[in-house]
Nucleic acid binder design. Structure first.
Lengths: 244, 244
DNA sequence: CGGCCATTTGACACCTGTCAATGTCTGTGG
DNA sequence: CCACAGACATTGACAGGTGTCAAATGGCCG
């Protein structure tokens, strides 16, 4: 049905697996229970046990961990088409907080509905688990970035990864994308101070590589960025293990 | 059967879920296909698609990613009782390499055997997935450590976490544990240089907190270390979501 | 207009990396 | 038994990347 306009999640999964009409239908039905959250107010606090998962349909969210000394480390961002708290419902775990960066729209998915959908359409289950697995690969890549790349490469890599993810749901391309993040978000993501983030951004801009300004990221020299970041999108692109 | 001596994995899972005799039996049967690997020789190279998973029964392994510039980032360690490449077989993903740190003993688990075991004993499946989920939480905590802790706290946190994990399989306690890692391993894990690792270790030793020497870690002031690292073992201890 | 927030910039300190040399131990071969 | 090579650990000197502190700028909104 509605082959005209699909949800971002559908769009993303379809890029990797050809889903049947039945599967598409089940997938769309997971989006029924719509909810909204306002920017800035924590959706889930770390340690709180999750009741449901969400499929983000509009807006950006970040997941992070707070430390006793007040600093925070952003672990990941969720953009339209991403699951939010998937693991937390399958197994209560994943002890971090979620905060909408802008006002968001999300579909609430009850554990029971999800399991039922999985039972009905195993290929859909595999596709969703593939997506979850890809999220994990991103966390690992994030770890590598913080551990072994200097600030410039880290920033470049982050922007490239974000661009690729957004492109997958039609929200950007090799020329750039809209981005509601502040430099503080970038700092908490990359393990830098906000001041240094600003310096790095200036340097990347003055090198003619990329501009981050007024809520928009513009790639001026995509190839140059890729080289600086040693960006290899294999961990994002891999066509699923399931294309049977 | 053999209620006398269980495998480390059994021991670990039993700390969180009371497994029935049937479940214990299925679990032990997963250990039938024994294999050995020698220290230093890469078991799996990143990008290579995995045929099977392993349950480590003796020895230490590390999983890491190599970068184009030759540096490496260790993502995680596997100690006895840990799964190795579990995700890689369920879904081909998790693009990193594995290397035994010492000679190891492992049980090879074919995907089919694993799925069959899961089908037979759902509670066992949940327990194993819980363990996998805990591994993920450790990666996240690792990320936080590299991003937001200074070298001293990072080292302290790492040693404490390792100690807790080992204690769970009877290989250490609050006084210390045997540890085959070199300072280079620590450096590649914590995102530091080997030289700086040495400085940090010296400082921790001279502060009377912990000694790392001759393959053994000795906690001299456990409470002090916990405070320095802001170590909160909640993400390790959480009793499963499944104790029904 | 007057706060408030994000951004920007400069000065300075310090944590950490790099380079280079030395020490220790182990295993190997003469 | 000794000489030697190789791996790991240790140390010092120095440079540089990043954090911190402080202040100025600019946009947005009540």
């Amino acid at each position: 049905m509605t082959s005209i306009e699909h949800s971002p999640l559908t769009r993303k999964l379809s890029a990797f697996v050809a889903l049947s009409d039945v599967e598409l239908d089940v997938l769309e039905r997971l989006h029924q229970r719509r909810r909204s959250f306002v920017a800035g107010r924590e959706m889930v606090h770390q340690g709180q046990s999750a009741r449901a998962a969400y499929i983000l349909s509009a807006g950006w969210v970040c997941s992070y961990k707070l430390q006793a000394d007040g600093t925070r480390q952003i672990v990941d961002f969720q953009i339209p088409g991403d699951f939010l708290g998937l693991r937390s419902v399958l197994l209560r775990t994943s002890d971090h907080s979620f905060e909408p960066i802008v006002d968001i729209e999300a579909a609430e998915v009850l554990t029971s509905d999800l399991l039922e959908a999985f039972a009905q359409t195993p290929r859909l289950a595999t596709a969703i688990l593939w997506a979850a697995s890809r999220d994990e690969a991103m966390v690992v890549e994030h770890l590598v970035g913080i551990g072994r790349r200097d600030a410039d490469a880290r920033m470049a890599h982050f922007l490239l990864e974000l661009g690729s993810r957004l492109a997958l749901v039609g929200m950007g391309g090799k020329d750039g994308f809209d981005c509601p993040l502040t430099q503080y978000h970038l700092a908490d993501t990359l393990g830098l101070s906000a001041v240094h983030v600003n310096r790095v951004l200036r340097q990347l801009r003055e090198s003619g590589l990329v501009t981050f300004r007024d809520g928009h990221v513009t790639f001026h020299d995509y190839g140059g960025l890729v080289e600086l970041a040693e960006f290899d999108s294999a961990y994002l692109d891999q066509t699923g293990p399931l294309l049977k």
